[in-house]
């Protein structure tokens, strides 16, 4: 109840004329062929900018980064699986920490993460952390997205683009992070699923 009331006040406040404008985000994660890079691109940016990662102390180990990712999962509710924690720790320790501490087997994507169907895609990309089928959570309900684009011949390509690039302002002030790691087939599967909701 308490949180709801504050949300109401924040929403009313958000439309006042004298709103401040924050500088754009410029920090970016370092590119890597490791599978954890894509996980980091998709998940970390939901709640915080990349500089939260890039400013951390040098030389943190695979084990230390793994514990930090477990803290993100358990303590702060990050939508990451145990398998993704391992991939993230491998990417982060290799890129920003002590690369020699990363075991070989942690550098490859386990078979359990193979993205074969749309349900797996939705789960592994954390879509339901912000969206629900029928009601607005942080992002719009899939049903509302489908309704907005119903009858629009560009619907599929538009929604695919919005998933791939992310954005802000179409449905409110909370930004959607870009899911640039998805391939064309995966984007089509996700966009089709969203547009089928009613």
């Amino acid at each position: 109840m308490r949180a709801v009331l504050c949300l109401v006040a924040a929403c009313l406040a958000a439309y006042a004329a004298d709103a401040i404008t924050l500088p754009p985000e410029t920090a970016a994660l370092a590119h890597s062929p490791l599978p954890g890079y894509m996980v980091a691109m998709q998940k970390c940016g939901i709640c915080h900018s990349a500089d939260y990662i890039t400013l951390q102390p040098p030389h943190m180990t695979f084990e230390q980064w793994g514990k930090e990712m477990a803290k993100m999962q358990h303590t702060y509710g990050a939508p990451i699986s145990d398998a993704e924690i391992t991939l993230l720790a491998a990417y982060l320790a290799s890129t920003y920490g002590d690369a020699v501490t990363v075991p070989k087997e942690a550098r490859v994507s386990p078979a359990s993460l193979a993205q074969s169907d749309v349900q797996t895609l939705i789960n592994s990309n954390g879509c339901l952390g912000c969206h629900a089928l029928q009601q607005k959570i942080v992002g719009p309900a899939f049903r509302d997205v489908a309704a907005k684009y119903r009858g629009n011949p560009e619907a599929l390509v538009t929604v695919e683009s919005h998933i791939r690039s992310g954005g802000q302002g179409r449905w409110g002030a909370v930004p959607m992070p870009p899911f640039s790691g998805l391939d064309a087939r995966e984007l089509e599967m996700l966009a089709t699923f969203v547009l089928q909701q009613h």
Partner: peptide, 14 residues
């Protein structure tokens, strides 16, 4: 004591 700032995800504590 609570303020107007809120978490991005419902799973994150206020």
């Amino acid at each position: 004591f609570n303020g107007l700032d809120t978490p991005v995800l419902p799973a994150t504590s206020d």
